[in-house]
Amino acid sequence: MRTLVGVGVWVYMVVAVLTEVLLYYQHLAYPVLVSVVSILATSQGVAIVLFYMQMKDEPASVKLFAIIPLMFLSALLVAELASLG
């Protein structure tokens, strides 16, 4: 059962990577490409964390170790870009 889930995640990963590359060749408007690729990359990350790293089975306290740094990082990124002015 778990093996099946693992293979399923792998299939999703492959599809996501290929989608990213295919979208690149479609010459979409740059902001569109950036948003779609960001969403896909993030979804890949989430899939790995939840299933390969099996965070879905961990207590909520462990999940905090994933959420807190991401919270800080998004603040850093937003402020960095905003300070370019």
Partner: peptide, 27 residues
């Protein structure tokens, strides 16, 4: 637990590098 804590810190390490990259790209 130690590994999770370490990876949590690594998230910030790679995030800082990638953040720097995005900043450089934007600028």
């Amino acid at each position: 637990l130690g590994m999770w804590v370490f990876l949590s810190s690594e998230v910030v390490l790679f995030g800082s590098f990638l953040g720097a990259l995005i900043f450089i790209r934007a600028a």
